[in-house]
Design a protein around this nucleic acid. Structure first.
Length: 159
DNA sequence: GCCAACGTTGGC
DNA sequence: GCCAACGTTGGC
């Protein structure tokens, strides 16, 4: 196995939370509904089987990384785009010419302590997080070093 | 609920 | 291809 890649996926828990993922059969879900080209490119081209994912709650209390997951299926067309009854229809996308892509992830474990955005902001080594550079995309690449720091923070309560 | 930042759309 | 208007994200 090559070294996995590391990612941070954002979700609004009111729409889909980490506990929703853990409640799925086999803790596995389609990461559908991404409708941003940069994020789409990551999902289509760069997110690989076996890559590790930090699950981040945006617009939430707390705003924080709350769990980890693993990519169990690589990029494939997001068929919810051409379903007019889905939550994120896009009439420009079709089976013959898919615009949007998704992956499947499997939830691994809830973090012992959520790692809040505030804490991420104030922790040395996390200043360069993609989260801060492109604040509005829902899929962010992170480095192994950043992954390790965040998982380490999760072992200790925020003071 | 506000609003800043940024992505997208569409007229020209 | 420019750019103003508009929509969305997401922290506060």
């Amino acid at each position: 196995m090559p070294e996995p890649g590391y990612w941070l996926f954002k979700s609004e828990p009111s729409a889909y939370s980490f506990s929703d993922l853990m409640s799925e059969e086999d803790q596995t879900a389609e990461w559908d509904g991404v409708r941003n080209y940069q994020a789409r490119n990551f999902l289509r081209d760069d997110v690989k089987l076996g890559d590790r994912v930090l699950f981040y709650h945006s617009n939430a209390k707390p705003i924080a990384v709350v769990g980890t997951a693993t990519v169990v299926r690589e990029g494939y067309p997001d068929f919810t785009a051409w379903d007019p009854d889905s939550d994120h229809p896009d009439p420009k996308s079709s089976p013959d010419n898919p615009i949007w892509f998704m992956v499947d992830i499997k939830g691994d474990a809830e973090l012992p302590n959520p790692v809040t955005l505030k804490r991420i902001r104030s922790t040395p080594g996390l200043e360069e997080c993609s989260l801060f550079k492109r604040p509005r995309i829902s899929v962010h690449p992170i480095t192994k070093a950043e992954w390790d720091i965040i998982l380490d923070l999760a072992q200790r309560e925020e003071n």
